[in-house]
Amino acid sequence: MQYRKFGSTGLTVSRLCLGTMTFGLQTEEDASRSIMDKAADAGVNFIDTANVYPLGGTESVAGRTEEIVGRWLKGKRDRYILATKAVGKMGPSAWDQGASRKHLLDAIDASLKRLNTDYVDLYQLHSDDRDTPLDETLEALDTIVRQGKARYIGVSNFLAYRLARALGRSDVLGVSRFVSVQPRYNLLFRQIERELLPLATEEQLAVIPYNPLAGGLLTGKHRHDAVPSEGRFTATVGKAGEMYTQRYWHEREFQTIEKLKAIAAQTGETLAKTSLAWVLANPAVTSAIIGASRAEQLSDTLAAIDLVLDPEVKAKLDEATVEYRWGDAPR
């Protein structure tokens, strides 16, 4: 395993981070524990979760993932960097979601209880709550840090201009500053290269991208004309399946994957391993978030840490996917 400084902080994390959003729905607890065991054995010391996980479940199962992670961490909490997130809907009341002071202060306490710990290393906004003033959110997060319930704070799914504004407001207010950003990033979604990644580099923010394999599409195992029987594109994972289908299940993406398969085949590496190595090759990326529904699925992704792409191969991958820098409309 390789390790890297977490942005401008003094923290060091593994270059692969274990994502847990399938734990408790798509992946039962025994399998989830096996996945965490395998990642830990490979040197992964960074675990990412969220209070709304497992993704695709109803409000009634929200929090189950944190509980599974908390039970696994018992007796070894000090050996891992633990990250969780809040903002998503956690209950029936109007204030059971969002980035208001009330919700965030309630949410961190609930997460800590489920995770069976006194603190998380990284507390992140899962998305941007436009209905709550940034100042209120930032001051609430600062309270959480000052109370010792979180060591650092970060964001996920933020547009570059909103993150830039939040950084500016935190400087003006003299409160804790975001140290990381967790965006979606892979060969089929490269829009963040235009503004978010340059901002992160300039502000020395850690970048921990999720979906490096596009929900499994970049394993190359799926066909556009065949409905998958398992994984993130199925109806069994509820709204999550719909979300992933809308993101990636299009003819253009499958045509691109055929090009990527041919490039990977020239190197003798799998498409999954090549795709993850491409994400890690970006100097702005600190740690890529990998996931699995079975422990054996981690073999390829864990091995990607040692794959250094030949510059010519990386150039071919860049060229084959350049249109994904611009969103839905090819240019």
Rank of each mutant, 00 (worst) to 15 (best):
R33E: 06
S34G: 12
S34I: 00
S34W: 02
S34C: 14
I35D: 10
I35Y: 11
I35V: 11
M36C: 04
M36W: 05
D37T: 12
K38S: 04
K38E: 14
K38N: 01
K38V: 01
A39P: 03
A39M: 01
A40R: 13
A42E: 03
G43T: 08
G43P: 02
V44R: 03
V44F: 06
N45W: 01
N45S: 13
F46Q: 04
I47N: 02
D48E: 13
D48I: 08
T49H: 07
A50I: 07
N51L: 02
N51Y: 02
V52D: 07
P54F: 13
L55F: 13
L55R: 05
G57D: 10
T58H: 09
E59P: 03
V61P: 03
V61E: 10
V61H: 03
V61G: 05
G63K: 09
G63F: 04
E67N: 06
I68N: 01
I68Q: 00
V69K: 00
V69R: 00
G70E: 01
G70S: 07
G70T: 04
R71Y: 00
L73K: 10
L73N: 08
K74H: 11
G75V: 10
K76P: 04
R77A: 04
R79D: 15
Y80A: 01
L82T: 06
T84V: 04
K85F: 08
K85D: 04
K85W: 09
A86S: 15
V87C: 12
G88P: 15
K89D: 07
K89S: 08
K89M: 05
M90A: 02
M90K: 00
G91L: 05
G91Y: 12
G91E: 09
P92F: 05
S93D: 15
S93H: 11
A94H: 14
W95T: 15
D96R: 12
D96I: 06
D96T: 09
Q97A: 13
Q97D: 02
G98L: 10
G98P: 05
S100H: 07
R101H: 14
H103A: 01
H103F: 15
L105K: 14
L105G: 00
L105P: 00
D106A: 09
A107D: 04
I108N: 00
D109H: 11
A110Q: 11
S111Q: 08
S111R: 03
K113T: 15
R114C: 07
T117E: 03
T117V: 03
Y119C: 09
V120Q: 01
Y123K: 08
Y123P: 02
Q124S: 10
S127V: 09
S127F: 14
D128C: 13
D129T: 11
D129Y: 05
D129P: 08
D129G: 09
R130G: 00
P133R: 10
L134F: 08
D135M: 01
E136S: 01
L138Q: 06
A140E: 03
L141A: 11
L141M: 15
L141H: 10
D142K: 11
D142L: 14
T143A: 14
T143Q: 13
V145E: 03
V145I: 12
V145H: 05
R146D: 09
G148M: 07
K149Q: 12
A150C: 06
A150L: 06
A150S: 10
I153S: 13
G154I: 08
V155A: 08
V155L: 09
S156T: 13
N157I: 09
F158P: 06
